[in-house]
Design a protein around this nucleic acid. Structure first.
Lengths: 157, 157
DNA sequence: ATACTTGCAAATGATTTGCCAGTGT
DNA sequence: ACACTGGCAAATCATTTGCAAGTAT
């Protein structure tokens, strides 16, 4: 009833395939929209609307409002997804990057990828505990990273 | 380096114990601060600053700024913690409620408690995969709830 | 009496909306 | 041509900051 975020994804290999997907739905491939896509394809990490707007990676700047509107559109189509790693602005990625997820340390703020090796175990444990089919794409897992864990021996063990 | 949130907690049984903890640190137990604490003690769910400010549970209204400032102070002391369940305002709870965590469905928005029965398994899997000591207190686990999982059979299985 | 707190106004950061001109198809 | 888009200004939502007046201790 109150869907918080997109539940569909459309993985695509490059701009051309993305453009085709858009046109198939009667959407246009405008300059701004293309720049947003190119910036996302060029980045190896989640990026904010502001970063894209201000010319991330040498692409021409695009009005911030248009960036937001395009990201929203692309998210509806399933090409893009957004996530939150902490208190900053939302971050956007292509759905084609997969859904491995992130880890953020509550103490030092360190951000890392959730190692794919152990993900299936985590999934299984969550499924068993709750019946949910987990996704790690919208919020990171958080806690104390190994380093801070060693340091914070007194705190909330 | 970039601590995102408090890593300490101070569980307390009631207002009086909380008041003592505050005074021990040279902090005052003003009317506003007491109302914020009372509202938190009276609520059985995480609440927003706005809710507290506008007189949740029949307590006298407190200026929103003061609520934010008090919540921040109480969080520093370790009496309070905040979390995000989705895109709305931050939600606050007493740390004395424990750290079981929440589950939110990406599709229908349903919010539930992470059943304590399976938590240790989940913790173990995350620890094994990443070395992190997980906390489920700041962001919920998300995914498809059992009901939506059955419905969305085509989507991103 | 002193320093911690409050309340109000104003600022900030992130995102959204209205509106009309611009442009893919 | 027509409908989808873009850009700019202004609005909105959540939260923070400045500052003078108020009050726990």
């Amino acid at each position: 009833m109150t869907a918080t975020r997109s539940t569909t994804s459309l993985a695509v290999a490059g701009i051309d395939e993305a453009a085709t997907a858009l046109r198939q739905r009667g959407m246009r491939v405008s300059t701004s929209r293309r720049v947003v896509l190119e910036a996302l394809f060029a980045s190896d990490r989640p990026v904010s609307a502001e970063e894209i707007s201000s010319g991330l990676g040498g692409y021409p700047p695009v009005d911030l409002t248009s960036v937001y509107r395009n990201l929203e559109t692309l998210e509806e189509v399933g090409l893009v997804r957004h996530l939150h790693l902490g208190h900053g602005p939302g971050l956007y990625v292509l759905t084609s990057v997969g859904d491995a997820g992130y880890l953020v340390c509550d103490s030092c703020g360190d951000v890392s990828h959730l190692p794919s090796a152990g993900i299936e175990q985590i999934r299984r444990a969550i499924r068993a505990a709750s019946g949910y089919e987990p996704r790690f794409t919208h919020f990171p897992l958080t806690g104390l990273c190994p380093v801070c864990r060693a340091e914070n021996e007194g705190d909330v063990p």
